[in-house]
């Protein structure tokens, strides 16, 4: 197994995969962290922002739709990641394995 790991590690396509996936997952993780901590920091420092009503004749405050938005966006971002990882990234990984493992297995 170790020889295959080494071969794949030396393949530039592997580093292309790891670069792409790394960038993508860190961007999404950062997005979630920024959204969540913005929410928490508003609650900690400026809670009155979330107490503003949506409109003059509404009792619903901004805090509620923003909170629900955080829940929904978390779900959507997981969906986006799963979609790209299960199609694009897995395909590249599979190609790498086929190229290095299966090919050398028949030699």
């Amino acid at each position: 197994m170790q020889q295959f790991y080494k071969k794949i590690y030396d393949d530039p396509k592997f580093h292309e995969l790891e670069g792409k996936r790394g960038k993508f997952s860190w961007c999404l993780a950062l997005a979630v962290l920024v959204i969540y901590y913005a929410f928490i920091l508003i609650i900690a420092f400026r809670p009155e922002i979330f107490a503003i009503p949506l409109s003059d004749n509404s009792v619903i405050t901004w805090g509620i739709p923003v909170g629900v938005f955080v829940i929904i966006i978390s779900f959507l971002l997981t969906g986006i990641y799963v979609w790209r990882a299960n199609n694009e990234f897995d395909q590249i990984g599979q190609d790498l394995i086929e190229h290095h493992v299966k090919k050398s297995g028949t030699e």
């Binding site: 969540y36 929410f39 909170g67 799963v82």
Partner: peptide, 21 residues
């Protein structure tokens, strides 16, 4: 009221992080 939502959200946002990382 609203404060309950803060806990819910905290419990939820761990999931995307687990997935991504």
């Amino acid at each position: 009221g609203f404060d309950g939502l803060i806990y819910s959200i905290g419990f939820l946002v761990g999931w995307p992080i687990i997935l991504f990382l």
